[in-house]
Write a protein that binds this DNA or RNA. Structure first.
Length: 492
RNA sequence: GCGGGUGUAGCUCAGCGGUAGAGCGUCACGUUGCCAACGUGAAUGUCGUGGGUUCAAGUCCCAUCACCCGCUCCA
């Protein structure tokens, strides 16, 4: 079991071994942003690769996609993300409770304010000008608020070099919408039939109110999302299918069972689009020992595709309002929505419907860290502490290290030759520096599953020793068999 | 956002007004025939950043940035 007990230890481990650094560190750091170092980038790539292999490569019913991060602003109107913009929050100076200012009540006015629709920030700001009469719902203090602060969920940027006619754009807050928007394209070109899924891995951006906790909640993060389209009525079956499939994926890659659990969402905490949602949680060894979400699996119903059908109908308003999202209301849904442009026609049963969607949405950064932390181990060997990372071979940043036992009798040359041969198939590391034991331990720390050592006997009978990371046991192997043996062991 | 804490070598930390330090790690040379061996030598710091006080500031004061813990928030 990992000996790490504090987040500080994890941060230190990541830095020391070159897995994760703070962004812009020499400038004092940038909050909530992190960089992957030489070992970290390999680990993360392997996590992506393992996800893709499990979700796309080995299945007949899932295809991949890679969408742009910038999308048509109406996408975010239709998805509901853009409306979050009007949330203006003020904080009570007395009790530090934050409230949406449009939910605050007047002291003199006992009648309930009408529930405010989301409006543009400018409009809301004008409304919110005067908080002197507003009451804090928590402590009852009157007019004792901080300046209203807009709560921006999405990152903004502009498209177009000319300042005057540049268009305000958003960095995507989830990769899912790129998939929904391409549903028709994939359907028309990939010869897929429902049930089928579209998978994507990519960066997303969210202006979280608080970040903290290392890379668990960052504003820029990487998601691996699958939108699995199925016929309404079969959605619950597929929900169960993906729950099990995804949970087992973590286990198969070495996460210890006692550190992994499901957490079912209560109906009142479900997102507006979801019929059901469950989190896969990992027990990160924070001070508090809290379970943290690695992945959410949601039944998104037909919500998104139906919303985008409304979005398409709103396109004229968009042009008429000079591309100003804040002036646009989404058009009502067509009563015949189930025959709309994003519907699916089932040739076999002559049925047309809007498919339901099951969405497993995993955080690549979070699971990368979970794999890292879960693999960490310390053990006593001959009175010394051996630190090692027991990565699953598929995830190990370096698969094999090759050493000459000593720097003479041509051993380095032979070792280099073998290393270069193995590099054709996987990451392989050559090292001739220092005592052999030290080199083994260095690789243990990097999580390298195998070490190959060339010794005096190699010249005589063409064999090498192969040392196993976890057991430290050694076997002799003929060099002709080395590559095949390793590839089999490494599942590559 | 609030409260508390921490920033000194790659890492862990000592130094708390008076020449910038240790352990581990890194590098070089030698030695070394299988698990962090040994010897010799070497490199490395705007003491997070910016101001101030002082003859003199890692050290005291102010601001700022970043991180951690606990709230709060968020999904």
């Amino acid at each position: 079991m990992a000996k790490i007990t504090k987040l500080d230890d994890i941060v230190s481990l990541c830095k020391r071994r070159g897995f994760i650094f703070q962004s812009s560190e020499i400038y004092g750091g940038l909050a909530s942003c992190y960089d992957y170092g030489p070992l970290g980038v390999e680990l993360k790539r392997n996590v992506r690769k393992a996800w893709w292999k499990s979700v796309v490569q080995t299945r007949d019913d899932v295809v991949g996609l890679d969408c742009s991060i910038l999308m048509h602003p109406l996408v975010w109107k239709a998805s509901g993300h853009a409306d979050k913009f009007a949330d203006l929050i003020a904080e009570c100076k007395k009790c530090n409770t934050r409230s949406r200012i449009d939910h605050l009540k007047e002291k003199s006015n006992t009648a309930d304010d009408e529930h405010t629709e989301h409006i543009s920030i400018d409009a809301a700001q004008a409304h919110a000008h005067d908080l002197t009469n507003k009451i804090c719902p928590a402590c009852g203090a009157v007019g004792n608020f901080t300046e209203p602060m807009p709560f921006r969920l999405m990152f903004e940027t502009q498209m177009g070099a000319n300042v005057d006619d540049s268009m305000k754009m958003f960095l995507r807050p989830e990769t899912a919408q790129g998939i929904f928007v391409n549903f028709r394209n994939v359907l028309d070109t990939a010869r897929v039939k429902i049930p089928f899924g579209i998978a994507q891995i990519g960066k997303s951006f969210r202006n979280e109110v608080t970040t903290k906790a290392f890379i668990f909640r960052t504003r820029e993060f990487e998601q691996a999302e699958l939108e699995f389209f199925c016929e309404p009525g079969t959605d619950e079956k597929w929900y169960e299918h993906w729950k099990e499939k995804r949970f087992n994926w973590y286990l198969a890659l070495g996460i210890k069972k006692e550190n992994l659990q499901f957490r079912q969402h209560d109906p009142d905490e479900l997102a507006h689009y979801a019929k059901a949602c469950v989190d896969i949680e990992y027990k990160f060894p924070f001070g508090s020992g809290d379970w943290q979400e690695l992945e959410g699996i949601a039944n998104r119903t037909d919500y998104d595709l139906r919303q985008h059908q409304r979005g398409i109908r709103t396109l004229n308003d968009w042009f008429e309002n000079n591309n100003d999202l804040s002036k646009i209301q989404l058009k009502a849904e067509d009563p015949d929505y189930h025959k709309g442009p994003l519907s699916y026609f089932d040739q076999e049963n002559k049925k047309r419907y809007i498919p339901y969607v099951i969405e497993p949405s995993a955080g690549i950064d979070r699971s990368t860290l979970a794999f890292l932390v879960d693999a960490y181990d310390e053990e006593q060997v001959r009175g010394e502490t051996r630190n090692l990372l027991r990565f699953h071979p598929q995830l190990a940043p370096i698969k094999t290290a090759v050493f000459p036992l000593v720097k003479k009798e041509g051993m380095p040359d032979t070792a280099k030759k073998i290393c270069n041969e193995l590099k054709k198939y996987f990451n392989c590391f050559y090292d001739q520096k220092g005592a052999i034991g030290r080199r083994y331990r260095r690789q243990d720390e990097a999580g390298t599953p195998f070490c190959v050592t060339i010794d005096g006997q190699t010249k005589e009978d063409n064999t090498v020793t192969l040392r196993d990371r976890d057991s430290m046991e050694q076997i002799r192997l003929s060099t002709d068999k080395l590559s095949g043996y390793l590839r089999k062991k490494l599942e590559m």
